[in-house]
Simulated scan of single mutants.
Amino acid sequence: MSRYERWNALLELLAEQGRLEVEEAAEALQVSAATIRRDLDQLARQQMVTRTRGGAVAHHVSYDLPLRYKTARHADAKQRIAAAVAGLVSPGEVVGLNGGTTTTEVARALAVRTDLTERPESGAGQGLTVVTNALNIANELTVRPQVKIVVTGGVARPQSYELIGPLAGLLLGELTLDVTVLGVDALDVVHGATAHHEGEAGVNRLLADRARRVVVAADSSKLGQRAFARICGVEAIETLVTDAGAGEDVTRAFTEAGLQVITV
């Protein structure tokens, strides 16, 4: 287990329990107590936990892990999902991407599809246009001159690198998108696509509203769950791309709700 995987596991344990003892964490992660103490000290310096004598207590943001700590979670599944999502995009389309580890993988998968990114023979226009409120996605794709990047504007949220707030809506109201790919915190047949943070949900909703079709890219751990703020109902979603870990009952429920479900 790498350092970042341990940090992620510690934050998840704290989110579930609120308080964690060093010996308890060492047993759960099968590492030494000294390693756990160093990890908790590092997380405390980054203001992710509050250190206590013999352990740590959850910081107020620990339920919502910053993007850099989420990258190790379900990494293989997210890469397979991303490749499948990229395969749904046609040359010349305008793609909306919100923030998150899965949509970051989608951006990378799109960027390496030469049929999407090469310029037309006429030399006019762009092979691929991406509209995003995610600073990390914009940063990665900006170095690729064959991809046109449009950033929404707004106030940066450090936990997810997403731009939120009314400024994002001012731009999105002037654009039309072919497809929006949404990463979500949870997806449920009844409650739809949801996010932990209401500001992110608001901008994500606008990205969905401005698109002709909406694709949700979500690993199986997100399915059948719900989070605090609603993005959109399942009726607004055309396609769900998830991993093979999703149970048959779960995927059947989405299919019966009218979604095309692709498992990878």
Rank of each mutant, 00 (worst) to 15 (best):
Q17V: 04
L135M: 15
E5H: 08
V241F: 11
T101S: 11
T114W: 14
D64E: 15
A25V: 02
V85M: 02
R213V: 11
P91W: 15
A9P: 01
N139I: 07
Y161H: 15
G100I: 00
L170K: 14
G54H: 09
D243F: 08
A26H: 04
G92I: 02
T152N: 10
A186D: 07
V264Y: 10
T102C: 05
V150Q: 14
D243C: 01
A217G: 11
L11F: 04
A201S: 05
G233W: 04
A236E: 14
L206G: 02
R205Y: 12
A227G: 02
E235A: 14
G18H: 08
D209T: 13
N139V: 05
T129C: 13
E16P: 03
T194A: 15
V57T: 15
S122Y: 06
A186V: 04
L65H: 07
E162N: 09
D115C: 11
D178G: 02
G183N: 07
W7Y: 14
D188C: 02
L167V: 03
R212W: 10
V214K: 12
S90T: 08
A229D: 06
G18F: 09
G192D: 12
V31Y: 15
T101I: 00
V234P: 07
Q225C: 09
R3F: 14
K222N: 09
R73F: 15
A72P: 07
R119T: 13
P158G: 07
Q42V: 07
A15V: 00
A26D: 00
E118Q: 15
T242R: 10
E174I: 04
G99F: 00
T71K: 11
A195P: 04
E140R: 07
I231R: 02
L182S: 05
A217I: 11
L116N: 08
A83L: 12
T103S: 00
V57E: 09
I164N: 00
R230T: 06
D243K: 05
Q159R: 13
V130C: 08
R213L: 12
A72Y: 02
N8Y: 04
G202V: 06
A193Q: 13
R213Y: 14
T142S: 13
G153M: 08
H74Y: 08
G123R: 11
L141W: 03
L116K: 08
G233N: 13
R144H: 15
T255Q: 10
V216W: 15
H197I: 03
V143F: 00
L141S: 09
K222E: 01
T255S: 14
V216A: 11
V184M: 06
V155E: 12
A77V: 01
R38W: 11
N133C: 12
R213C: 06
G199I: 03
R6T: 00
G127Q: 06
A156P: 14
R37T: 12
K222S: 02
K222Y: 05
